[in-house]
Each structure stands twice: as C-alpha cells, then as structure tokens.
Design a protein around this nucleic acid. Sequence first.
DNA 1: GTCTATATTTTGATAGAC
DNA 2: GTCTATCAAAATATAGAC
Lengths: 194, 194
Amino acid sequence: MNNQALSSKKAQIFQISTQLFRKKSYTGTSMQDIAGAMGIKPASLYNHINSKQEILIELLLHGAGLFVDGMNEIRASQLTDLQKLERLIALHLRITVDNTDLMALIAVEWRHLEGDGMREYLKLRNAYENDFRIILKDAMDAGQIHQMDVEIAFFSILTTLKWFYSWYDKHSNLSLIDLEEYLKKLLLGGLKIS
Amino acid sequence: MNNQALSSKKAQIFQISTQLFRKKSYTGTSMQDIAGAMGIKPASLYNHINSKQEILIELLLHGAGLFVDGMNEIRASQLTDLQKLERLIALHLRITVDNTDLMALIAVEWRHLEGDGMREYLKLRNAYENDFRIILKDAMDAGQIHQMDVEIAFFSILTTLKWFYSWYDKHSNLSLIDLEEYLKKLLLGGLKIS
DNA sequence: GTCTATATTTTGATAGAC
DNA sequence: GTCTATCAAAATATAGAC
C-alpha cells in the first residue's frame, strides 16, 4: 500500500500520517493519534517535524513530484502523442498501486493545505494538468484520436484516474498488466481512431 | 447546487452545513463556522439541533434515502434489466445535479459518522448496492449485456457515478439530456450487446 | 429563539529535565 | 531523542437571563 522507507523516524511519521490522514482525514487526525500509532508521546514528534501542516505539505509535494517527474520523462520521449497518453495512464496506475493511501490525500486532503504550501502544490498540479491537456489536444490535432471537446475528454479521463485508487482498493488482486489494459480500453477505447 | 428548502432555521442549518462540510470537511468545520455563516452565535444552533454529529447523520440519511427511494421505484417497474440500469444512471445524474454538495458528503464525509448513525447509513448503502448488483447480474444473465466479472463491472460503474459530482462541478453548463447520454454511453457503451 | 457566560475536553505546540 | 509539565487557543455543549 505504501512503499515509503521506514529507516528514519521522520519517514515513519510520514508513513503513519498518510494512513491516518486517509482514514480519518487531516483535520480528524490529532498529533496524539500519530504519536500513539508510533508508541511515543505527541511532544516527541516535534523533534522530527515542525508542525502538523508541514507533514501534509511534505506528503502532497512528494506526491505531486511523482507525477511531475513521470510527466517530464514522457514529454522528453520520442513517442507519438497517443503513445504518450497510454504512458500517462500507466504512470497513474503505477503511482496508485505503489502509493494507494497517498492518492487519497491527493484526491481529498489537499484542500487542507495552507498559504505557501497550497500555492506551491497548486502550481505543480496545474503544470501537470496543462501538460496532460496539451498532449491530449496534440493527439487530437494529429488525427490519432477522434475530434471532440478537449475539456470534456480531459476531465473525463483525469477524473477516472484520480478516483481509481478507491476502485483499486477492492481489486488489488488483479495483475498490473490486466489493470493497465483495462484502463487503457476504458479511457481511450472510445477515442482511438482504428 | 442545493435545493433544500430555506423555510425553517433547521433547514438553513442543513443547507449551510452541507456546503461547509464539503468545502472544509466535517472535522474541519466548527459550530462557530456554521453559526457565523448564518449570522448567529454557536449556542443558538442548539435550539434547532442536538449536536454536530446529528447534522451529519440527518444529511447522509436524507441522501441515502434519495437513492433508496429511486431504487425502489425502478425495481417496482416492468422495465427490462438493461432499461433499469439506464434508469439507475439517470437517477444518479439527477440526484447529483440537484444535490452536488450533498454528493461530496456521500463520497467523502460519511466516514465521520459514529455509532448507530454509521450502522444505519451503511445498512442503507449496502441494500442499495446489492440491489444495483443484482440488476446488473440479471441483465448479464438475460444476455442484454456482455458476460464479464460482475464485481469489476459493478464497481467500475458505481465508482464513476460516485465521483461524477466532482466532474459535474466543472461542466454544469452541459444540458441534462447530453449528460445522460454521455454517461450511458461511457458506462454501458462497452457492455451492451448490439 | 438568541444571547452571555461558562464548563469541559481536546487541540497543536513549547520548555526544559533526563 | 523522549519524556513530563504546561500553555494558549479552540472545540462541543449546557445553563439560564432576556
């Protein structure tokens, strides 16, 4: 569910916070909850982090980084735009499988970010979404997928990918290959020009 | 966004709480927030409701009731199972359009229910989902849609419908008829036997 | 039906001993 | 690095005057 290293206490705080924030929400999780799950006292947490908000920021910026890095790799490639779209779907799938709890924070808990943390997060998210939109539009302009309203196609695909984690929870027994084929067919099947 | 009557103060509390719970989450919304949005003091709220948790319970049981009532109407009809599936999609769409904020609570905030409230809510939700699953299975057995894993098809359809409200937010300009056709094609297009 | 005043808990966070 | 002790603020909720 979550591959974050357990080596340091700080990493352990992040891992447990991810689980708790998903289960009880950011505002519904107390420092007491986090410390209790680690077997220490709340005050001890502050030797590793400066505030509860800082935990949320680090988790979400880490998550956003996974998407931005994957996007940059795909953009730098020589693939066709349609192939890039397929890679983006595979990217979402891989990140979701490796960080299911974190995806819940990306889908729901980001709204509890404050100030600069929120601004920085939204900057990364907007950059990613814009890159995604451009690839979709280019694939359309190149005649690789059917001509249609870019915004509708874009949000339809992204919404499904965004909430896929809640679906994956119940089907983590399926193989990665099957899931990838299923998602590609679901999201691009009606779009591709055969 | 929310058609709840404003006639009584109690109804006004429900309406404002729905908006705030969606925007700031249940645990992130204080009685102060609700009272402040109404222009009264927090203590005054308790003349109309008994607790913050009671607000959440009433909102979610009302929401669950919309689905259960719609399901009962559809089940009582003489439609084919495939037609019933199409009616269920239209039901979700109509409830989402009329109660967009409430759908966010159904998708996310239900986890903050406690005790009997949680048990009663889950009972209604499970009953609805079971009825939905049975109709899907019957449509498959009757040869109206392609044979496939019922659970995968079921969760795939329900997940999309569940998160549709976050998509609808950005496309509330589209006509109901277009949205219904789009959703039916998206969810049943690959399934229907032509 | 709303208010002020208040009780009680819990919250995030800090100081300082060990 | 963890603890105890503590703080200040905010939370839900109640009592009782008006």
